[in-house]
Design a protein around this nucleic acid. Sequence first.
DNA 1: CTGCCATTTTACCGGC
DNA 2: GCCGGTAAAATGGCAG
Lengths: 83, 83, 83, 83
Amino acid sequence: MSEASNVAGERLLSIITRVERLEEERKALAQDIKDIFQECKSAGFEVSVVKQLIRIRKMEPAEVAEAAQILDTYMHAIGMAVD
Amino acid sequence: MSEASNVAGERLLSIITRVERLEEERKALAQDIKDIFQECKSAGFEVSVVKQLIRIRKMEPAEVAEAAQILDTYMHAIGMAVD
Amino acid sequence: MSEASNVAGERLLSIITRVERLEEERKALAQDIKDIFQECKSAGFEVSVVKQLIRIRKMEPAEVAEAAQILDTYMHAIGMAVD
Amino acid sequence: MSEASNVAGERLLSIITRVERLEEERKALAQDIKDIFQECKSAGFEVSVVKQLIRIRKMEPAEVAEAAQILDTYMHAIGMAVD
DNA sequence: CTGCCATTTTACCGGC
DNA sequence: GCCGGTAAAATGGCAG
């Protein structure tokens, strides 16, 4: 036999191979992102600021959710929970 | 104009949008990988060991041997050697 | 010789031993914290709320620092940095 | 009254204060450990390998053997065995 | 080559 | 008691 010596081995190898494939795609995307930031820099933008902008755009909904969660926790704490 | 008030702004918005798009694809791939490890677990494999295997497969054989060698040397040095 | 077979080995063993000692102290502190939360629960407080309070007390200065960092980043970006 | 407005509040504040104190001690210990690894590096040891050694020392010998065994089995299963 | 940041791994904590 | 997600820590990669 050449690679996987039995049924379990074939299954395992399939798992490993698929993961490795997806990781490569992931790596390629990371490279694409890096390329865009390179272009960003060439266009005269501060990369760190742009990254921060992106982070803020992501965070705003997250912060709303967090605030809601804090409120919810307190309401539970004082026995006012609706559920 | 709707969002970006000038040429630089449009360029910047384009950059941000493209990065965000790629990041979402990255996130989706990460989820796919998680799913495979879930399947891996269901199939009865030790996920941590499978991850270790994938790590080893990424390394050059020489690197693997060298790392083992250093570890062995240190173990001898502190009297932890198996022999 | 019994444990470390040479000068380098003794040095290495000393390093390892000290790290292990500090890690144990760290672990003991973690246990102490857990014990306090147990007491907290017994006293009738909602542990999750107390933890959140602690987190919030930690976060306030962190948020100030973050805001300052954002300002700093922008000032750099527009060439107004003081340094 | 200054900070805690009642007995429960005082109790709660005591809990919070003690936890925060212990967390600071924990943080200080983490810094001490970092310092030792810095010294370790300066002494010419491979920090990653030393960390690996410490991990192995924490494990029961039987566990070490078992983990190696499983890895070996999987490597054989997918045809990566060295022998 | 050192410090920083992203990713990964590990420990914790709640629900089922 | 295990399993799931979540928060902390460690690791590795990268820019400066």
